[in-house]
Amino acid sequence: MVTTMLAARVSLSPSRVGAVINRNVGALRSGPSYWLVLVSGFFEPLLYLLSIGIGVGALVGPITLPGGRVIEYAEFVAPAMLAVSAMSGALSETTFNFFFKMKYSKTFEAILATPVKPFEIALGELSWALVRSSVYTGAFLVVMVALGLTSPGWALAALPATLLVGLAFGGVGMAISTLMRGWQDFDMLTTGQFALFLFSGTFSPVQDYPPAMEVLVAATPLFHAVELVRGLAIGELGWSLLGNAAYLLAMGAAGLVFAARRIQRTLCV
């Protein structure tokens, strides 16, 4: 009996996960406001790349990587902005939109009266966040290639890495959303996101940070995202990238499982 219960819990239906994604595609068609949000989400990291990567980069000069290779400052910053756009794409979908569907519009409640299970909702939402995230990063990679900040080959290699970044932040974004009490809690999230944005080896190598800070930063997710995406985008490969990838994978999986459990706990009462 325990095994059948376990099987019932684990068994997933791709068509039901697809139906959750399908709902979000439908919502996309419904109004221009969503498109506005979508477009602004893409431009933000691009503006940082242009202003800081290229503007400030002209003052800073080239950067020497730990391995000794010297690259342009813009080449250094661009992959970080790519990771940031993967992060914000996934987060904006799994925080504001997810929270709205869970707490306000009662969309999840309606879905739970059908055969769709909480885990399938979470997985569908995460997949959709990945779609949004990869629209951002795909477009950003095109810009990077156009500006000569990466080669087409390395851009292709970086794309799956950005998906992993989306997965990690999407999973955690959902988990956080299930814990939010109201919109005011989102201020904390925005602040946290901005702190990560500034201090994750985005604008300067972490080796330049004070040692204590370096250790702290190495524990945070965007650092691993930036390391992984940068390594691939500039073709600076190393075993440590596997560690970064494992960190992100674990983060995404943990977020997903936690979010599914919270959906169950809060809505199936």
């Binding site: 239906s13 439908g26 009662k106 969309t107």
Partner: peptide, 27 residues
């Protein structure tokens, strides 16, 4: 078929899509 006490129709979808989208949850 479940009709809850408080309507939880999908505000992001139109009337027809509310039905077609829901149908997909049933495969």
């Amino acid at each position: 078929g479940v009709c809850p006490q408080l309507d939880n129709l999908d505000p992001d979808l139109n009337v027809r899509e509310n039905l077609t989208t829901y149908a997909r949850y049933f495969g």
